[in-house]
Design a protein around this nucleic acid. Sequence first.
DNA 1: CGTGGGCTTGAGCGTGGTCAAGTTGGGTGG
DNA 2: CCACCCAACTTGACCACGCTCAAGCCCACG
Lengths: 245, 245
Amino acid sequence: MSNPFVRKMESFVRLSPDDRRMLESAVERTHRLGPRENIIHEGVEPNVVNVVLDGWACRYKVLLDGRRQIVSLLLPGDMCDPHVFLLPTMDQSLGTITSVTLAKVPGPTIRAMAARSFALAEAMNWEMLVSAEIQREWTVSLGRRTAAERLAHLFCEVATRLQVIGRQNGPDCELPLTQSDLADAMGLSTVHVNRTLQELKARGMVELRSKRLVIHDREGLEGLALFDPGYLHRRSDHDLAHLSA
Amino acid sequence: MSNPFVRKMESFVRLSPDDRRMLESAVERTHRLGPRENIIHEGVEPNVVNVVLDGWACRYKVLLDGRRQIVSLLLPGDMCDPHVFLLPTMDQSLGTITSVTLAKVPGPTIRAMAARSFALAEAMNWEMLVSAEIQREWTVSLGRRTAAERLAHLFCEVATRLQVIGRQNGPDCELPLTQSDLADAMGLSTVHVNRTLQELKARGMVELRSKRLVIHDREGLEGLALFDPGYLHRRSDHDLAHLSA
DNA sequence: CGTGGGCTTGAGCGTGGTCAAGTTGGGTGG
DNA sequence: CCACCCAACTTGACCACGCTCAAGCCCACG
């Protein structure tokens, strides 16, 4: 199945056909959004969980004086905060980057899935823990990595996340961020992102053109980034085999 | 009750006497750790959730070349990842800052509490969402705030978090971090933290001495930090009243 | 063919880092 | 109770990574 949500959940936990069916029907009703739009919670109670099925979105914060920080990227298959539906009001600032297809899964549906299938409950918890771990890695990047290291790390992260949902085959993958998006994500200025990208290209590591990321030297890139893929907690096939036993 | 864990949970959700009793007995068996120690998960399966009952701890990451980033602070009442017990192995690097008293609550106990009391389940989810929100605010700080703003923001955050557990009465509160801890938390160098602290003091905002933080001008500090307490989601008394209805 | 968003380049500057040398002060042992 | 000691803090000088401002370019779109 090419549903990235199901694929992602399956990367965490072995799913039964029934689990898979539940997931699929949960995200059946979809909404379409254009690029650079706000994802607004319509009700006072944000009693839904957004799941991105296609396209890229992000969570961001804007300071009073206009400084903007992208706080996380939402790729196909990602859900934002499986538990928000519990909160009265959540100050979500979510925006699309590209056109996006998303499903709004009602809180009760999430609860029902978790209650009916232990595997699904487990998968949703994995999702939360992994996204928390990504957030922490960003903290490390912004706090302690240089500009080149930050970009390199982000590219490794994105490539790995896309791999999980089967969207990275060759050495290149989608990356629909503008340089100014990259700047807002990595706490840099656009100008410096531009120069750093040129440096990475000159060093034969990575190239960015027409919304695609071409990785020429994955190993070098991971070395520069001090990237340790472990934090994304993809289960190896071995682990999965062990689990199903 | 002065149990900071119970107090914190109560700041999220109205608890019944029974809920309170469950929480208290869950953290009855405590462990003591000295300052600057590692909090290590003894088993292969980290099937416990750590709850800090007294003292300060932190989660951190160290890059291969030694650069260190403190990724979050754990204050009394904080639990680290209520759902980790689901994961086979979690690369937690948790360390104490001061002496710490902590409880190791077994996964099954957590599950049982959540199953028996909806309020407790809700409170634990709040805890997770709030800590995620704090993490995001750190991302904003490290990405887009200047050194002075970062420290100011951290001080506002800490003061507010301590208030919740009833540990901030007057204008000053505990802050057992060294300047080098502050540096590792806010992505700065020790030297620059020192100079920035002097600047904040000269501006009459804040003073740091003998492990205590004295806030002279809370309003000014919040203004400088562009601090918006909303993200910590403390429920006002009004909200709590409304909920219990 | 025109327009504007995104990319590129240059010059100058400032925040914050590094290195290195003191100074202070809380905790320990005598 | 004092002396000592080490960690934490402080200060100075210098430097560089990354920012700002400003102008020009490219090309994808209408």
